[in-house]
């Protein structure tokens, strides 16, 4: 594998050709904030938190999509970027209804953690507070649109890992909403396998297990890597397992 060298915040790091800047920076121990990205899922590029500056370009680039190149000069935490990241979180918080004190994810929420990490201590924009319905028709899970940040992780997990494609988006712009099935109550979708991956990967309290009360919902998005590793190793594949067992 070809190795390339790039400069990140004035330090040299090496990376494998074909990696994204996000992967390279994280592999070398650094960090770039992300929200819509999740290891194991395809990239989406919607949250714009991972924007970075590239030397020689006035444009900002999403780290989750940008491929490393030899000699690339990357800045991940300039004043401009930090300011914009805060604004993204402010916009997200203003969009729907994020009253942590009464949320099942309080204390475990990625949005909340990100706001704290980036130092978002107030929201300058008016809260739009749309009054959106909840969907509790599923026997195991609940969907609360009021907490959804439209990151589409649920959609990608269900489509790409579980292979069900229960989730999609209806409407556009500020009226976008996640939907289940053909815009039917979740409980009526007969393609949902009830695996719960969407719930595990959802960064906020939008998807939760039924019965969880305030601050009781904990999620494990890393489960995806686990599923994928298992699939690669053929844990659920009888033939592969037999040969592997034979080898032991």
């Amino acid at each position: 594998m070809t190795v390339v060298t790039l400069t990140v915040n004035d330090e040299l790091i090496s990376a494998n050709a074909g990696q994204t800047v996000l992967e390279a920076v994280r592999d070398s121990g650094g960090n770039i904030p992300t929200m819509c990205h999740l290891d194991g899922l395809s990239n989406y590029g919607g949250c714009r938190l991972c924007l970075i500056e590239l030397g020689g370009s006035p444009k900002l680039s999403p780290a989750c999509f940008t491929q490393v190149q030899e000699g690339m000069v990357v800045f991940t935490h300039t004043d401009r970027l930090i300011k914009y990241r805060k604004m993204v979180i402010e916009l997200l918080l203003s969009e729907r209804n994020h009253i942590c004190a009464v949320c099942v994810m309080n204390g475990n929420c990625e949005l909340q953690a990100m706001a704290a990490e980036l130092g978002v201590d107030n929201v300058r924009y008016d809260y739009l507070s749309p009054k959106l319905a909840m969907d509790a028709s599923h026997e195991l899970f609940t969907l609360d649109h009021n907490r959804c940040i439209l990151c589409r992780r649920c959609m990608r997990a269900c489509d790409e890992i579980e292979g069900s494609h229960v989730w999609d988006i209806s409407g556009r712009g500020i009226d976008s909403m996640v939907i289940t099935g053909l815009n039917m109550p979740w409980g009526e979708s007969d393609v949902c396998t009830k695996c719960g991956k969407c719930v595990q990967v959802c960064p906020t309290g939008a998807l939760s297990k039924k019965g969880s009360s305030v601050a009781e919902m904990k999620k494990d998005p890393v489960c995806l890597r686990w599923v994928l590793d298992g699939r690669q190793k053929g844990i659920w594949d009888y033939e592969k397992r037999a040969t592997r067992l034979a080898q032991v």
């Binding site: 714009r48 604004m87 993204v88 969009e95 500020i174």
Partner: peptide, 21 residues
């Protein structure tokens, strides 16, 4: 622009609405 935004990215989806307001 607010009506035509696809809603994929945060700055446009929420930004168009906030600037409109």
């Amino acid at each position: 622009c607010m009506d035509e935004s696809c809603g994929k990215c945060v700055p446009c989806r929420v930004g168009t609405r906030q600037t409109y307001d």
